[in-house]
């Protein structure tokens, strides 16, 4: 009986301490010190309208934009997910074949050997904000043709938005597709 009452009282005390006080304390400190990041690194346009988060990828289907990773959920960020295809799943091969065909018709000037693996595979989250620098470069000829921007200008845009490995060592070099497309939008409006 003694164990039972102590257990119950201790559970309630710990529930308040770790469930409520801990979370509230961290929220309070985070909101006071780092409000922008704590709110989700949100981005606004000049009119103050919310256009997304720099950490969350967006759906780009129009060929005049740089495209991100495939997303089985079309970048709807109230959820997250992926089809979880096993390497041996025939559906994976069918989808990848389709991606390669689409690439060929949209980018007739770029050989398939320049198409990078990240552009024909689904990301883990379905919200991947990045592609590889090579994946961005491979899209330049198409975008140059559709927007009229010179290849050299697009190349400098891509290299400006290429982030190297963190601390020079960890992870992979990345290009943030949303930020790159924002810059692209500004360049075309000039």
């Amino acid at each position: 009986m003694n164990i039972l009452t102590i257990s119950l009282r201790l559970s309630l005390v710990l529930m308040v301490l770790t469930g409520l006080l801990y979370n509230m304390a961290v929220t309070g400190i985070a909101q006071a010190l780092l409000p922008k990041k704590a709110d989700g690194s949100l981005m606004y346009n000049k009119e103050g309208q919310l256009i997304g988060s720099e950490l969350i990828g967006q759906n780009f289907t129009d060929p005049k934009w740089f495209h991100g990773r495939l997303s089985s959920i079309s970048y709807t960020a109230n959820g997250s997910g992926t089809p979880n295809y096993a390497p041996s799943n025939p559906d994976l091969l069918t989808r990848a074949n389709q991606s390669v065909q689409d690439w060929k018709s949209a980018n007739p000037d770029v050989p398939v050997s320049n198409l990078t693996m990240d552009l024909i595979t689904n990301s883990g989250s379905g919200l991947d904000p990045h592609i590889s620098p090579k994946g961005a470069q491979a899209q330049i000829p198409r975008i140059s043709k559709l927007t009229g921007l010179p290849v050299s200008e697009l190349e400098s845009l891509v290299s400006k938005h290429t982030a190297s490995r963190q601390l020079g060592i960890f992870g992979e070099p990345t290009v943030n597709v949303l930020k790159l497309n924002l810059a692209l939008q500004q360049a075309t409006q000039k």
Binding site: A96, N97, V100, S113, M117, T121, S123, D128
Partner: peptide
């Protein structure tokens, strides 16, 4: 990587990227 995808003739330097995030890549 995945031999089945590598056979499509795309740039396979990144390794097996299905279900992985670009910022982590295969290693991380």
């Amino acid at each position: 990587g995945n031999p089945a995808l590598n056979a499509l003739g795309v740039d396979q330097q990144q390794g097996s990227m299905e279900g992985k995030e670009t910022r982590f890549g295969v290693t991380q």
